[in-house]
């Protein structure tokens, strides 16, 4: 039954959905039954038909009945809620571990072999344990298709685990409000068959760090929004703390390099240098030292996507 998000893609789905269906069934039964009774009474005992009320002050039997029955029902609901949740608390020892680094406002995924990605790549049918780290405020990792969610709290070690059961690409959201770009702090999970995953994981020539869900341009825009570029650089040519991005790519810029004024072409090379070593060239008319390096915070792929997006800002 697909009452919840998209496909049923992890080992927790059946437990969570079962609890959901049982609770909803009981809820709907009571909601409909009690509403029907209420409406029936409104007609049946309307003062036009029933001008004289019969005074009844209560009934101990009924009070006991409608205390005991709901108590039993809520204990049943508690049980299913507990049963669906229990396995989430203990990750199998042989889980494949990935570190999730969260910051305002993006996630990066770090693998044991040093690979860092923008999309969470995981093998199918193998337990995956995410070690959750936050560098600033509280975030929360939420993968609806897997029915999992855990807050990422700065200064403490939290984890979540799951076994993905279907290939595909799924959403991963930040669900703890974390400031300005909270609603853009989402990413993708790509579930691959184990062999394919292993090839991807061990093959260092393969640089794929983002799943092809959105176009590189769209990804570039999202990344730039998330890491906060646009707070200081406008898209419409207006002057903020730093130079505008409008019409930047492919044009010449006058910059100061170590006290020397020179003219450079804005190309891939220049943009990469500006991101990773922002104080090397300072555009004429702007101040030094305001931007810090994004070294180690952006993957190669992400930088390429940023460049693709800048190309569109004619």
């Amino acid at each position: 039954m697909y009452i919840l998000a998209s496909t049923q893609a992890s080992n927790f789905v059946s437990g969570v959905d079962k609890a959901f269906i049982i609770i909803l069934a009981i809820c709907f039964f009571f909601l409909i039954a009690l509403t029907a009774v209420m409406i029936y009474f409104m007609f049946k005992y309307n003062k036009k038909k029933h001008p004289k009320a019969t005074q009844i002050k209560g009934s101990n039997t009924l009070e006991v009945v409608w205390t005991v029955i709901p108590t039993i029902l809520v204990l049943i609901m508690f049980y299913y809620g507990w049963a669906g949740w229990k396995p989430m608390r203990e990750a199998p020892e042989d889980s494949f571990e990935i570190t999730v680094n969260s910051r305002m406002w993006n996630f990066t995924f770090q693998y044991d072999n040093g690979r860092r990605t923008d999309t969470l790549f995981i093998p199918k049918d193998r337990p995956v344990k995410l070690n959750l780290r936050s560098m600033d405020v509280i975030h929360s990792v939420y993968i609806p298709a897997f029915r999992v969610k855990e807050d990422v709290v700065p200064g403490s070690d939290k984890f979540m685990w799951f076994t993905a059961q279907n290939e595909g690409i799924y959403e991963l959201f930040c669900t703890e409000y974390c400031g300005l770009q909270h609603s853009y702090m989402y990413n993708w999970v790509k579930v691959m068959p184990e062999e394919e995953f292993n090839t991807w994981y061990t093959d260092t020539t393969q640089q794929l760090a983002s799943a092809q869900v959105e176009s590189p341009t769209a990804a570039g825009k999202r990344i730039m929004t998330n890491i906060g570029c646009l707070a200081c650089h406008s898209l419409d040519g207006s002057r903020l703390v730093g130079p505008s991005f409008k019409g930047l790519y492919g044009h010449e810029a006058t910059v100061k390099t170590g006290g020397e004024t020179r003219t450079v072409m804005v190309d891939d090379e220049y943009i990469k240098r500006s991101i990773f070593d922002p104080n090397a060239d300072i555009v004429e008319g702007f101040n030094k030292g305001l931007m810090v390096s994004y070294e180690g915070q952006l993957t190669e792929t992400e930088v390429e996507q940023i460049i693709e997006y800048l190309k569109t800002l004619k």
Binding site: V16, F20, F30, G81, G84, Y142, R147, K149, T175
Partner: peptide, 23 residues
């Protein structure tokens, strides 16, 4: 109030809470 209260049962149960919390 019944709708509010009954949906609270979804939020009170652990498995379903984890799913819909903060949504």
């Amino acid at each position: 109030f019944m709708i509010g209260g009954l949906s609270g049962l979804v939020l009170g149960a652990l498995a379903t809470n984890v799913y819909v919390h903060d949504t």
